[in-house]
Nucleic acid binder design. Structure first.
Lengths: 112, 112
DNA sequence: CTTTCATATGAATGTACATACATATGATAA
DNA sequence: TTATCATATGTATGTACATTCATATGAAAG
């Protein structure tokens, strides 16, 4: 695109309101966490009850390795926490933001 | 994993509350839309003002083709709408859910 | 009509990432 | 200690998808 017509008015207004790249990137990363079916299922399950890794595997019908990898991602993002209980690791939600975000997604889903 | 210990109590409770696969998949797809930096930027910009494709390109410093592809994805998902104005296509947000979802994401970002 | 600008779209490419496999670590029991 | 269960993690692989390039379509002007 060589000949761009003038948008300076609109663009300058918008540009001021737009957060910096790093922040927008972080924001995208948060939604990316919710953008995977496996992770959504895990988070949704944890909304109901804390669960050990093995229970999540059985619930989703997936391999333990896959679940553990996803749990680590969720933990690094501070969406879930874990505690040891003997041989097991029990995972639970870190806070209520997860519930709010999922519910908001559902709203959009049902209203369109 | 051959020898799975018994989780039937917890699992049965959670299983009843878990939506079906198709619904969870759709839910994930919505968040996937917000999980890309380019799309987040576009949506954020449209929160401030309706914009033509060319303005978005200039604002984000990206190629027109890339922007158009992303706009199509957002339009197919009913997050944005477009209208023709001469040679230009003006894009705007379809509803206020976008604002709510982005704001909620920001909350999580700033509180952790 | 032809030309030019604005946008849309098909195809190719590179990258990010979810899963599988193999293996390591941690914890309890014998 | 060794054996077994539960989980974690490193690596490889396949797939999904964002961007680019090239081109097509749409709209206005000359």
């Amino acid at each position: 695109m060589e000949h761009i017509h003038d948008h300076s008015k609109e663009i300058n207004v918008v540009k001021k309101e737009l957060p910096n790249d790093s922040l927008l990137c972080d924001l995208g990363d948060i939604f990316k966490l919710f953008g995977d079916t496996t992770r959504i299922k895990i988070l949704y399950a944890l909304l109901e009850s804390e669960l050990c890794v093995c229970a999540i595997c059985e619930l989703l019908g997936m391999e333990q390795s896959a679940i553990s990898h996803q749990l680590r991602i969720l933990k690094n993002a501070n969406l879930v926490t874990s505690k040891r209980s003997g041989k097991m690791s029990i995972y639970s939600l870190a806070d209520e933001h997860v519930r709010e975000i999922i519910e908001l997604g559902f709203e959009h889903l049902t209203e369109v």
